[in-house]
């Protein structure tokens, strides 16, 4: 192997790793706030990618209809969960979030989609369509289980992943899609040809991480989310609506998932079920980082990306095997370092 290949592999690894880092961050965030290990996050990558690809082709994406369906289901679930303690403002708020908002987005999509409004509007529209699905799913699937053990939440998350993959096939069809890059510029640096998309990915990842950091450090909502993560009951006692915190965390995860999808679809063909494997890498990173550390997750994600690009060079058939079994030595190391973890659920 010469240094050019090495550099290319590294670059590939870092670019993919940046995406995994975003996913890992949102997994850590959702886990901290809600204790849900959000296996279904990968579906948002696929949904984001396919929605963007459809908009780019001038078609109305299937996810618009899906958003409508989820909105109705979320409304029904919200009404059912709050039965007996419904008042006018609560109902209006619920209707606004589950019916009006999706309807507005759908109308915007129906009007804009055939106009091929350009990359920026298409990206924003994609985010607007896909992001709200995540809090809707929180309402439907997880809110009633808010006090269940981590394991039950994990099983529910896996079940949700199953449903969303099936729905993905229904609403997007079995074909894979790829979209053009945001820009065609290529920067040459020595032996490296850095494509514009890689710069976009790096730049947006960095910007998003900075924004998240500011959000958690500076804003009241961000601090409330952190408080919920540390101690749910305590947060509730000081007046933080923890259900709201869950909705916000899921919305952030949906947003990050959709954005990752938009960023990744120019690099690789995305199918309705591609999200799981992409999400699983973010997952691996989050676990390696210990499910509690943001910098740890980012670092681990970059490692996973690099490991992946090198193993696809050397043993491409066993790429997945290598990437996913890498988790085992890490768990062993954690296990030895932490000693017995006696936790009571």
């Amino acid at each position: 192997m010469d240094s050019t290949i090495l550099a290319i592999l590294l670059q590939d690894g870092v670019v993919n790793g940046a995406i995994y880092a975003l996913l890992a961050l949102s997994l850590v965030l959702v886990f901290a706030v809600t204790r849900v290990i959000y296996v279904a996050q990968g579906e948002f990558v696929a949904y984001g990618a396919l929605t963007y690809a459809a908009l780019d082709g001038g078609h109305l994406p299937g996810s618009v209809a899906l958003l409508g369906v989820l909105g109705l289901a979320g409304c029904a679930a919200g009404l059912w969960q709050a039965r007996g303690r419904l008042d006018r403002p609560a109902v209006l708020r619920l209707l606004g979030e589950t019916i009006v908002l999706p309807a507005v987005i759908a109308v915007a999509a129906i009007i804009l989609a055939p106009m091929k409004p350009g990359v920026l509007v298409e990206v924003l529209l994609t985010l607007a369509i896909v992001t709200p699905m995540s809090p809707l799913l929180y309402r439907i699937a997880f809110q009633p289980l808010a006090d269940a053990p981590v394991l039950v939440l994990l099983i529910a998350a896996v079940a949700l992943h199953l449903t969303l993959t099936g729905l993905g096939l229904v609403f997007f069809g079995p074909e894979g899609f790829r979209a053009p890059a945001f820009s065609d510029i290529t920067i040459t640096a020595g032996p490296l040809m850095i494509p514009g998309q890689a710069l976009w990915i790096g730049g947006l990842t960095f910007a998003l991480m900075t924004a998240l950091f500011a959000f958690f450090e500076r804003s009241l909502t961000g601090k409330a989310l952190r408080a919920t993560a540390v101690n749910r009951l305590g947060a509730r006692l000081v007046g933080i609506p923890t259900e709201r915190a869950g909705l916000i965390a899921f919305a952030l995860a949906g947003f990050i998932g959709a954005l990752s999808g938009v960023l990744i679809v120019p690099l690789t063909t995305v199918y309705y079920d591609s999200g799981f494997m992409i999400g699983l890498r973010g997952f691996t990173a989050a676990i390696i980082g210990g499910l509690g550390s943001y910098p740890g997750a980012v670092l681990a994600a970059l490692l996973v990306g690099v490991a992946e690009s090198f193993s696809s060079f050397w043993a491409s058939a066993f790429k997945e095997v290598i990437v996913f079994t890498a988790i085992i030595p890490v768990l062993l190391w954690r296990s030895l370092r932490h000693g017995p973890a006696e936790e009571e659920e």
Binding site: V150, L331, A341
Partner: peptide, 11 residues
């Protein structure tokens, strides 16, 4: 097995 339960599931 020495880590908390969900690590086994994820593993």
């Amino acid at each position: 097995v020495r880590l908390s339960g969900h690590y086994l599931a994820l593993g």
